[in-house]
Design a protein around this nucleic acid. Structure first.
Lengths: 348, 348
DNA sequence: CACCCTGTGGAGAGCGCTCTCACTCTGTTA
DNA sequence: TAACAGAGTGAGAGCGCTCTCCACAGGGTG
């Protein structure tokens, strides 16, 4: 049954016969590559409609060496027995879903299909690399979740176009989109100081991750400019639980804390819980500013004041850059940096 | 540069030359389809290793009519101007991330690659259908988010193997995995009653969605068996916000409520917030049982008692069923129902 | 000793497409 | 009028693979 249906798929030859022209001409009309007489063009288009013709991807791909697919790779550190950042929970941070969703959406009208891949050990990284090396996809969009990920460099080695989300921890010749993280952190610092906070603290991300580093540095920089020579910080790992742990620690070290900047919303949520369990009112006793403006920012009580990262737009730009690189013969390494915005709600 | 690297990819011909055998023999060794003398086999494998040969997917696909990819389709209702269930936010419920993640993981060792697609209007549905009809993927895994989704039926029409997450709202000849939703709801009901709740309420999902319906019915059934002839319910739409709204409504209608069953964790989270804002202590004044055991169950305070849906295992089973169907010549329509488990935490 | 297996390898067609090359048919210029 | 440009079209090769057919060797059987 299924086979019959598939076999029934009309080929170029069929369309050509119906239109009374050659296969080559039909191909030209469909791809719009060369001039075809308007009358002929019309006849061909009618024949296409009549037969319900759709080009066979595999056949086309065989000769053009284009697949019409790109790899969307989420890369995580090798799953340690004791490693906390396991890729299996990666989607519990809505961040990745937002990125992937936006990529899918942007690619769709270009008829480019995203193949989703996870890479979290040597074997799966090798799989991704060989997938690209042998032309199974026209390029890769890579979201890495940890520092010193070897994958970006390995992918460059395949010669395929790639675009990264966020600047890699070591400089490599790859295009990327990123956020002006330090600027975002400055917004947070100034907001906390403007509302009168006197004793600041930071829950950062892992400090070998550039974006986490930049957020901490930016915050400290802005605080220093306003007289706060030192701001204590504790590093988390961007998970809810690590936010709880970090807040507990920060609170123990600095009990008179009255303003905390947290490097992402998920950790901020954990931090708020801990503060409330310690009887601190948010924002009255301690003000909190998060980062990302993810859906969870609306699910905390009080609602989270946070630095918005336009994830969807950034992902869109990633996809665009990749498509551009795929079309270009001479691929250029480019970057695109987005500006964060402070979204004021109730937590600060 | 990139082109040169790609062109350098060795072909079967190259391997055959190195091994001193014919193309056909190399193909046989690689696919293990027919007996090849052990000595020859070894020579070929060495040649493969030496050349770094990897089969060209497009060429293979052209003749086998197999693509080595499956479509993973998330299907949502058309985006109304006033429609609340927009696919763009779909990943803010970790549920979908869990499903997709598990699918990717299960497919990976079989070297089957998932192409992620969203379908949320006539055009994108048609795109998915034609993608399948013309053999661009070997099958489809479909997660539908609303009742009366026309996509499952349309996909059956393509003749491709498909597997659904959850029983469709109208019976159609398609395989699916599902949860014994009513049983899960019964667990919740008995747990609430066992802990002494006297006035129950339910926040359900949209009642045209079978799983939502089953959960409500199961709960009511179990409650009735223990003397609770009627349990008031309000329908939400599985989002955080709808949980807040529904809880507000339920509380207004039934102020002496002391036990609430909520059809998913995200709505339960919203419900808890509303209860707390109304000065009700959870679980002392009102006990709450959620559904899913999603990551958010650990992020509420108190932590959520909830009915676990083994989403990852279910997704794994979906993938397995699809692979099986793809390999089988005579595709059989099958279903696989999982048993829920009550996870007792602090909210009830 | 002829016969026919069975087990193994090679030759070659052909999957559906794109693209180069050559051809025809205009219309234009010397 | 001859020569030529240019535009539109067709013929056919070939992308890398699988798979059907066929050839052949070696060994058992009547």
């Amino acid at each position: 049954m299924s086979k019959d249906l598939r076999r029934a798929a009309p080929t170029l030859e069929d369309v050509a016969k119906v239109a009374g022209v050659s296969r080559a001409t039909v191909s030209r009309v469909i791809n719009g590559k060369r001039k075809v007489a308007p009358a002929v063009q019309e006849v061909v288009l009618e024949a296409v409609a009549e037969t319900g013709y759709v080009p066979n991807r595999a056949a086309r791909s065989l000769v053009t060496r284009r697949t019409g697919t790109v790899a969307v790779v989420i890369s995580g550190a090798d799953a340690d027995p004791d490693g906390e950042l396991d890729l299996s929970g990666v989607f519990s941070d809505p961040f990745f879903g937002r990125v992937v969703g936006s990529l899918v959406r942007t690619l769709r009208p270009h008829d480019v299909h995203p193949v989703l891949m996870f890479a979290d050990d040597e074997q799966t990284r090798a799989q991704v690399v060989s997938y690209l090396r042998f032309g199974n996809a026209d390029g890769a969009l890579l979201v890495s979740t940890y520092a010193d990920d070897p994958l970006p460099e390995a992918l460059i080695g395949t010669g395929s176009p790639i675009v990264l989300f966020a600047r890699p921890s070591h400089p490599i010749p790859a295009s990327y989109v990123d956020l002006a993280n330090a600027d975002g952190a400055r917004l947070a610092a100034n907001h906390l100081l403007d509302r009168g906070c006197r004793t600041l603290g930071v829950i950062s991300g892992p400090l070998d991750v550039p974006s986490a580093r930049d957020r901490l540095d930016g915050f400290r920089d802005a605080a220093a400019r306003r007289g706060h020579a030192f701001v204590p910080s504790v590093a988390g790992s961007f998970t809810f639980e690590s936010g709880e742990t970090a807040m507990t620690e920060l609170l123990a070290a600095t009990p008179d804390l009255d303003g905390v900047f947290v490097s992402n919303d998920l950790m901020a949520q954990g931090a708020i819980h801990v503060l409330q369990e310690h009887g601190r009112r948010v924002p009255d006793d301690v003000a909190i500013v998060g980062f990302d403006d993810s859906p969870v920012a609306l699910q905390t009580r009080p609602r989270l004041t946070t630095v918005r990262q336009p994830v969807e737009q950034m992902a869109q730009e990633m996809a665009r850059m990749l498509l551009e690189q795929i079309d270009a013969d001479e691929p250029a390494v480019r970057s695109s940096i987005f500006e964060p915005v402070l979204v004021v709600r109730d937590s600060a």
